[in-house]
């Protein structure tokens, strides 16, 4: 009932030429989510399951350190912890605006190699997630529109459409976001291609506050690619926020240290 009323209200507002109000609303909703989402740094133990189109699973565990220095500047270090034969394999990714640099450390060779030509849209370590999917939303680069307010499972959510600006290399023509009102956490997202078909869909669950933090985090993240029939589940078994990681911990030397 409430959502119907709001839709009607929205139509009335739109009809009276005050469309901008709704758009700003959507934008502030997303901005709220970004603020909530932003952390100085995070350390996560991740259990990763990649399922292929025939339903077969591959399990890996890894530790993920990430740090956002400022908007658009993101540092990530991944170290695999299991299975044994890849333990210590590390992956360092430094994103600065549109420029990404990536290095790989193979303990078997005790050597770091730069990986050329990786972009934000590439798959994150062979999963259904892309690097972009795991970054915080960049509010300035998108235009947002509130679609409706509704319930998703037992949470009240805003449903917002995000469309990339002209110059963006975003592969999706539109993303539909379901943002929880209570925690400002992204609970669900659908990624539409140029033909407006859903190519990936994201869902998050087990939303709680990591120990010692007031921020809300989903601890189970799932990404499905319906076209390819594959999916990835990232289960965060330990989550620490804002422990004071600094950029010295995101260097080639630190990449090699853990091996």
């Amino acid at each position: 009932m409430r959502s119907t009323f709001l839709t009607l209200l929205g139509l009335l507002i739109a009809g009276s030429g005050q469309l901008t109000t709704a758009r700003q609303d959507a934008r502030s909703i997303v901005a709220g989510m970004v603020t909530q989402d932003r952390d100085g740094d995070a350390t996560a133990e991740v259990r990763m399951e990649v399922v292929d189109s025939r339903g077969r699973s591959r399990f890996r565990t890894l530790t993920l350190w990430s740090r956002t220095a400022q908007e658009g500047e993101r540092q990530q270090l991944i170290r695999f912890t299991a299975p044994a034969d890849i333990r210590g394999t590390g992956f360092l990714s430094l994103q600065n605006g549109a420029v990404r640099e990536a290095w790989l450390y193979l303990p078997a060779l005790k050597r770091t190699r730069r990986i050329a030509g990786t972009g934000r849209n590439d798959r994150f370590v062979g999963t259904d997630f892309s690097f972009r999917d795991l970054e915080p939303e960049r509010v300035d680069e998108y235009s947002y529109a509130l679609v409706e307010e509704t319930m998703l499972d037992s949470s009240a959510v805003w449903v917002v459409d995000a469309r990339p600006g002209e110059s963006l290399d975003d592969p999706y023509s539109r993303r539909r976001l379901w943002i929880s009102k209570a925690e400002s956490v992204l609970l669900r997202a659908e990624f539409h291609d140029q033909d407006d078909l859903v190519v990936k869909s994201y869902s998050a669950s087990d939303v709680r506050q990591p120990p010692g933090s007031t921020k809300w985090r989903a601890h189970v993240l799932k990404m499905e690619s319906p076209g390819e029939g594959t999916r990835t589940v990232l289960e965060i078994t330990s989550y620490l926020l804002d422990t004071g990681l600094d950029s010295a911990q995101f260097t080639k030397r630190s990449l090699e240290r853990g091996g």
């Binding site: 292929d52 025939r54 077969r56 591959r58 695999f80 299975p83 034969d85 890849i86 394999t89 992956f91 790989l104 193979l106 303990p107 078997a108 060779l109 990986i115 990786t118 590439d122 798959r123 370590v125 062979g126």
Partner: peptide, 26 residues
């Protein structure tokens, strides 16, 4: 063994999929 495993991981992570027809998933 570690070397082979890490090469294959690297290949997957780099987005390579030409090996799918040459080795099964596990």
């Amino acid at each position: 063994r570690a070397r082979i495993a890490q090469y294959l991981l690297l290949y997957e992570n780099a987005g390579g999929n030409d090996t799918e027809k040459l080795a099964d998933f596990d």
